[in-house]
């Protein structure tokens, strides 16, 4: 039971990262590799701030702002520097690695019982693992609400149009470069925030904790889509978070089968690969119906 509650809590926090990735991968329609640098960057900022006695709320906000900064850099390289977006992301990601080492001073820094957002007093009264679930849920709901609202504004619609048909967007007077920069900043802000929260949850920041985060985020997005199919945009945001939880549960299951945590990266890659091929199987075997039954029926 406690394994499941801790997995759900983790799934919610990783869901924030997946929401960020959704903005670039699904709405702007390109893969942003910055995530693998932004995630540890958020964690590094947050953890070292906490270690230096900064208030947990401010430390968490700092991880969001830090993420926005990395998004801005990738965005500028891509739009103004005309560097292909995949490479722009890789450049930022690579550069941040050194910055993270600078911030942390070494490869891994622990929290050492400092106060975090997750051990605030009122959360301490909850049973084990529930602080993470409560905080994850609050953040996920808040972010989904804000994103849904944003996507329904004139600016949000211009942002969606940019990813959907750039040429058309320009012909309607939308500055698509600015939309891409905005999207990358928002996206990486959320990813940095996820780094900060998961760093607090795990009690440490590690310069290598970004490896594989792209795959984790994409898996959440795609599992959400496979399970829930065609939905309105707001419902798709919710599906992303649920996809993230399902993904964690699948990992837990695999672990129970006797694999070790060392196999995690391989397993994540395999899970994502299978999920991405599902639409192919879907045509042949109607897997979506089967999966839906499996998920919605007790």
């Amino acid at each position: 039971m406690s394994l499941i509650t801790s997995t759900i809590g983790q799934g919610l926090l990783w869901g924030i990262l997946a929401l960020g990735l959704f903005l670039t991968f699904r709405i702007l329609n390109f893969p942003d590799m910055t995530v693998e640098g932004t995630f540890p960057f958020g964690a590094a900022i947050c953890i070292s701030a906490l270690v230096h006695g900064v208030n947990p709320i401010i430390a968490t906000i700092l991880s969001f702002l830090g993420g926005m900064l990395t998004g801005l850099i990738t965005g500028l390289l891509y739009t103004k520097g005309k560097i292909p977006v995949l490479l722009a992301g890789i450049l930022t990601m690579t550069g941040i690695y050194s910055v993270n080492l600078r911030i942390l001073g070494k490869a891994n820094v622990g929290l050492l019982n400092k106060a975090t957002l997750l051990n605030e007093k009122f959360l301490q009264r909850l049973p084990d693992n529930f602080p993470t679930i409560v905080v994850g849920l609050l953040f996920a709901i808040f972010i989904i609400l804000l994103l849904a609202l944003f996507l329904n504004t004139d600016l949000g619609q211009a942002f969606i149009a940019t990813g959907d048909n750039e040429k058309m967007a320009q012909s309607l007077g939308i500055n698509t470069d600015n939309m891409k920069i905005l999207g990358l900043m928002l996206s990486n802000g959320l990813i940095g925030l996820a780094g900060g929260l998961l760093g607090q949850n795990g009690g440490y920041a590690d310069v290598n904790m970004g490896i594989g985060t792209m795959v984790i985020g994409l898996a959440a997005i795609i599992i959400g889509e496979v399970v829930y199919g065609n939905l309105s945009l707001t419902a798709r945001l919710i599906a992303v978070v649920i996809g993230s939880i399902i993904y964690r549960l699948i990992l837990l299951l695999v672990l129970q089968l006797g694999f070790s945590t060392n196999d995690f990266k391989l397993i994540s890659a395999i899970i994502l690969a299978i999920c991405m091929m599902l639409p192919l199987f879907e045509k042949k075997f109607h897997t979506r119906k089967l999966l839906k039954k499996g998920v919605t029926k007790p």
């Binding site: 329904n152 004139d154 619609q157 007077g173």
Partner: peptide
Amino acid sequence: APRMTVAENLLLATKRGQQRGLHLR
């Protein structure tokens, strides 16, 4: 824009060339 609805496309067009801010659409 293929992944937006007919009405959403039209709405984008009614604001051609205008400043697009954080007002609900």
